[in-house]
């Protein structure tokens, strides 16, 4: 093909998407960076305040609370990742029947609207008539008001977060497991290594690239948690203090209190946090991820 004409076709076919990304993605990034340095007036409009918003948030207790809650949530959800490895390893057992049925069942929470999931679990976690406290009661434990108590709320939300993502992560792990060449296991079998030993000596090390990827996306998603908190915790509940996440604070600040400049600053801080923690994970991976 004539190369000039090929150029023209290339630009033409990319144009719709490129324009859309420019308007709805790139421009907003620039604009948010700018707004983070402004204060929004009562009747609209923005005035430049430099780094004052950052300074304000730096001494803001709610911001620190949100940061601590979000980090705790992320750590809890990351701690749940091994569950998905176990599920994937079990699904990968040779000759297992019913694989696709199991996969469907484990995947149900992933395809269910988070708002509906959150409502279901707020029923189960209810302090008075919830099933979880009922079960705890039968073994003599007096369960707390999970979603009304700032000391417990984020743990309850993390349980739901883990439950909703087991199926998704297990699919990723299963793909990783299926990529491990059979001959490693055959060699181990000849050496007389048992199933459990094979799992720890072959499966886990060779799965580490997938594990790393899952840890990174799980962390990034966890740092942006909003839906579950918004639907499980009442707006006026004292538990909000212990479960208000960064994105929740962003929503409250920007769209309940209409302080958009300050909200933009929170979004920028979230971006910074995600970048720093992702970079940290990439640094750390050299110590534990095996690439063949």
């Amino acid at each position: 093909m004539h190369s000039k004409r090929e150029w023209a076709w290339g630009y033409l076919l990319i144009a719709p998407m490129a324009l859309g990304l420019a308007v709805f993605y790139l421009w907003p990034i620039v604009q948010t960076l700018y707004l983070s340095m402004t204060e929004s007036g009562v009747f609209g409009g923005y005035t430049w305040v430099g780094t004052a918003n950052f300074a304000d948030l730096f001494t803001d207790e709610e911001m620190y609370g949100a940061l601590a809650n979000t980090l705790l949530y992320a750590v809890l959800v990351l701690a749940g990742v091994p569950l998905s490895i176990v599920v994937a390893a079990l699904l990968n057992v040779p000759g297992l029947r019913g694989l696709s049925l199991y996969r469907t069942l484990y995947f149900l929470p992933v395809v269910t609207m988070p708002a509906a999931v959150a409502l279901t679990w707020s029923y189960l976690f209810n302090g008075d008539f919830g099933a979880i406290n009922h079960v705890l009661g039968t073994v003599g434990i007096d369960g707390p008001y999970w979603l009304g108590d700032p000391d417990f709320a984020i743990y309850a939300i993390a349980v739901v977060g883990i439950w909703s993502s087991i199926g998704y992560n297990a699919v990723l792990f299963l793909a990783g497991l299926q990529g491990i060449p059979r001959h490693y296991y055959e060699a181990a079998e000849i050496d007389g290594a048992g199933r459990l030993r094979q799992f720890f000596r072959i499966t886990l090390p060779l799965l580490t690239p997938t594990t790393f990827f899952v840890m990174v996306i799980t962390m990034i998603n966890a740092l942006q948690v909003f839906d579950l908190v918004y639907l499980m915790i009442d707006l006026k509940s004292p538990a909000l203090e212990g479960s208000r996440t960064i994105v929740y604070l962003f929503y409250e600040t920007g769209f309940v209190q209409n302080q958009r400049g300050l909200a933009a600053t929170i979004a920028v801080i979230l971006l910074g946090l995600i970048l720093v923690l992702t970079a940290f994970q990439f640094r750390l991976q050299k110590k534990w991820v095996h690439y063949e």
Binding site: L21, F24, Y25, L26, W27, P28, I29, Q31, T32, L35, I220, L223, Q224, V247, F250, G254, F255, R260, A263, A264, A267, V268, L270, L271, I274
Partner: peptide, 14 residues
Amino acid sequence: VLMVPGELFLIPRY
């Protein structure tokens, strides 16, 4: 664009 969290787009889109 893929790397940027969605909250950064929200206020300008609004």
